[in-house]
Amino acid sequence: MSFFARFAQNRGALVGLIILLVIIAMAILAPLLFPESPWRMVQRPFLPPLSQDGFPLGTDTMGRNVASGLMHGAWVSLLIGLVSTSVALLIGVPLGAIAGYYGGWIDDLLMRFTEFFQTIPNFALAIVLVAIMQPSISSIVLAIAIVSWPPVARLVRAEFMSLRNREYVEAARLVGQSNTTIILRQILPNTLSPIIVLASLMVATAILLESALSFLGLGDPNVMSWGYMIGAARTVIRQAWWLSFFPGVAILLTVLALNLVGEGLDDALNPKLSRER
């Protein structure tokens, strides 16, 4: 069975993929449909949804177009999710690989280091980091990466530990392959499936983290993000619930879609039925 056929067997994953494609389209089309900055005040404030053409979701406390903010926010969420996950992988994969492959005191040292980061409450750490570094896209990406690499390192380490004593790896060592070759050619390719699945779930978590940071006022002041929109409307929730409602739904759908896709990837990459032995 092909990879996509296995993926598509999971109907939820297919739905997730479609939602995700819609959100990606939103991010790409935002500058075309709403060429104006989402920060511009274009109408009177507190315009309810569907009350006026061109403002399907109304306007916010400052008279900015909510629909425009929502579409531009999609781009920010996806960008931060993807980049911070990539950075986290760049930290976690080599660390886990080295710890798992070499074992011994190297493993001890690297794992104590990882445990240290896992013990620290990660959202609190992200807040502190962004606050100290001053909010910006790069500080947010870095903070999210710093709090989210430990699970990657642990997963990769566990995979390496179970694979390094596999007979085919021992055979490679016996024929004289170097450690680097063994790590990169024999072991790493066999750990990719779980890493890919974890990465897709991490993008989702990163988007949640970003929105929570922006909600607390730690977003990049130059970009419109969903979390910021909810945070800015928090104090007027009694008058204008929709200002918080729609961005929240957008976050929910994105995170949900990524999780569904992650589950689908898991089914497709780690087929349990066809697995030998």
């Binding site: 596999r166 007979e167 085919y168 021992e170 055979a171 490679a172 024929v175 390719p189 066999n190």
Partner: peptide, 14 residues
Amino acid sequence: QMIFQDPYASLNPR
């Protein structure tokens, strides 16, 4: 050189 026990684990699936 060595011949291993487990015919399923002794060859890299990829």
